[in-house]
Structure formats: structure tokens, C-alpha cells
Design a protein around this nucleic acid. Sequence first.
DNA 1: CGAGCGTCTGAACGATCGTTCAATATATTC
DNA 2: GAATATATTGAACGATCGTTCAGACGCTCG
Lengths: 205, 205
Amino acid sequence: MSPRPVRAMDADEKVDRQARILEAALRLLSLQGISGVSMRAVAREAGVSLGLVNYHYEDKTSLIRAALRRIEELDIALVEPDPALEPEERLRAALKRVADPEFLTTEYLSLRLQLWALAQAHEDFERINTEAQKRYRAGLAALIQAARPELPADECGRRAADIDVIQNGLWLTALLGLDHASISRNVARCEEIALAGPPAAQRQD
Amino acid sequence: MSPRPVRAMDADEKVDRQARILEAALRLLSLQGISGVSMRAVAREAGVSLGLVNYHYEDKTSLIRAALRRIEELDIALVEPDPALEPEERLRAALKRVADPEFLTTEYLSLRLQLWALAQAHEDFERINTEAQKRYRAGLAALIQAARPELPADECGRRAADIDVIQNGLWLTALLGLDHASISRNVARCEEIALAGPPAAQRQD
DNA sequence: CGAGCGTCTGAACGATCGTTCAATATATTC
DNA sequence: GAATATATTGAACGATCGTTCAGACGCTCG
């Protein structure tokens, strides 16, 4: 199928041009927004010819769609349960993951933002974003349910929704500059929400 | 200066074309993102000729800059203190304002989102967004300080920062669909944060 | 070797972009 | 009413856009 990726490659990596094109598109989308993503700019950034971009990706739309799906993968991985831990620690680890330095990169946060912005403009992209968000929230609710089996499912959903809001605010605000103290406070708040005591009616002071 | 806006206007309002151009740009930005904002599209949407857009706005950049400043104005107005209320109620009113139906419009939320997305791509727009956010947070901190005069200033800043995160998450998440119950819960959470009891060291269970 | 196939290139096409500008329309001033 | 200033138009410019395509390259198989 592919022309043998073996053999000493000249520079660092000239194989798998399709992947390099996708990464170039992601880089441009993050740094310059959708206006900076032209087929020619992507080709230049990936070090390939213009024609090859249209060879591997039928459309500009297909290219961007592939880029958005890549972002979605990274997102979902955040709530992927760590099987080495017990349920409660597994949930805590997932909640802490949004404060990881590798997650709070400007490049990654900006990519997420551009995904949201594109979702407003293009119905096709909106579906990708909505489904990603739905999957993420479902993963979160499952983690909460596992850590607090006594909770009714809809209460887990409520808590997942509230945490989702705060986490969305966290990464969005992080784009203006990292305030690690504020991040820790909000991560702690998410843990409180997720692991709050009894499922009983909320207390009213 | 302007050619007498009196006289019976033909349709509904054909005067103040500059304002209509700006509103057309905002409408397009909200509905289609930055890719949908071309000088020609703006002219068509505003019902004026192409040349007039470049007459009232030197650049495309100037036009978008004006649009972003308009969004900023709407944002800041949210924390504008209501002089008819006492400090604590004034703060509560400001915090509740983000749940107002007129604020949770898709058009307005999408505009905000596009502002953030543009800020990532263009240094000039980034400055506008950063300053708007700074002014908003300062207004929030001032409201908290007025409602809780015994708090040290930096504690007010911390609370404003935390509330800002949650509110950013609120409007961003609202773009996926309005979950009024979740919104109320988060508004309540913001009130708790802002009006929390003593400024003493936080309790540790 | 030559036919076949997947990969890759760069020129070319028509469409659209932002910007400029001469010309016209409208309002203000004397 | 002429003169002037302001507002408005639409054609035209060069640049860039997404897409297409004929051809070249490298590899495998008979």
C-alpha cells in the first residue's frame, strides 16, 4: 500500500505526509485561526506540494473535519479512566488532569477554542463539537457514578454538567494567562462537587 | 457634518449607514464566524455599496476592531453597578445578569466566542480582549469589595477571578444549549463565592 | 523490462478577496 | 444659485483562494 516507509529518511521524518499535513493544519489553526488555514499555507507548513493536500484530503472541509476529530480524541482521553486506580482516585485523577501542564498549553487551548468557534459557523463542525462534549460529559458522569455508587444517575449527570461548566471556564480563561492558584482552587471545587457527601436534598442555610 | 437625518426615510431606517455597516458586520461575525465577514458580504448585509464600507472603515481590520469594541461595551455593562440597589443586592444583581435571557442569546454568545477566537489570531484583537476581561474582573472585584468592605482587596480579586472562570464556562457551555437548571446552580455558586462568610483563613475539614 | 499503481508535483482555472478611485449624488455654506 | 464639502456608488486592480489535472516519480509484480 504505502511505498515502504523504511530506508534512511533524509531530514527528520519525511514519511507519512498525510499525518504531517494534518499536524500542519492543526498548528496553523491554533496559531492563526481559521483565516490562517489555507490549502497553500498548510502545504507550505507541511513541506509538501499544494496538490498533495487535496490528494490526501478531498476538500478543505475534510481537512478541517479531520483536524477537529483529532482535537476531539485528545479531549476524550482526558476522562479515560486510569485502570490502575480505585474509583475515587480515578475520578480525582481525571479532574486533576485539566490542570496538567501538557493540557494547559496555549496551542492546545487555542485549538479547542477554534473548534468551538468553527462549530458556530458550520453545521457539520457543530455536530463534531456537540458530540465530543456529550461524550466527555458522559465519561465524567460515569467516573462519578463509579466513585459514588449510591448516587442516582441523574444526580451524577447534574454534577458532571456543573463540573463541565467550570472546566470549560478554566481552559478558556487560561488562554489569557495561567493563574495557577485560581486553577487549583477551581480544581478543588470540582472535586468537592463530584464527591460531595450524601445524595440527599441539598442543604439550605 | 452628517447630511440631516431628518426627512421621511424610505424603508425603516436608511440613515446612519456607518452604524448599519457595523451591525451587519456583527451579525455576520456571529452567524458565520470570521470567514463569513468579507467586505462584500458586509456591504450586502447592510444594504450599501462595497465602496462605502471602505469609506467609513479604513481597513477590514478597523471594521473588525470596531465590532470587537462594541462587544466589549456590552460586556462591561454587565458589571455596571445598579445605583438603585444596596451594595450586596447590587452584587447579586450583577451576578444574576449573566443568566438574563437577553444575555444568553446565541447571537451574543457567539459574538463573544468569535472575539476570543480572533484574539488568538491577531495581536491587536488580543489586546482588546485582554483589556475587556481585565476591566470586567476589576468591576466584579469592586462590587465584591463594596458588598463585603471587611475583605482585603486581594481576597476580592481572588473571588472575582474564580467567579470569572465560572461565568466564562457558563456562557461558553450555553452555546451548546441552555440548561437553565445548571445555570441557576452555577449562578448560586457564584453568589456563594462572592458573599462567603469571613475573610479569615479558609476552613479545612 | 514493461505494465500497473499509489504517491506527488506544479501549472492552470475561475471565483472571491481587500483596496483604490474616478464619478455621481446629496447636503451645507455663502 | 453657485461653490464647497460630504456621502455614496460601482468598476477595476492585483493578490489569493479552493480545486482540477496532466504528467512525473518510485515501487511492485509478472
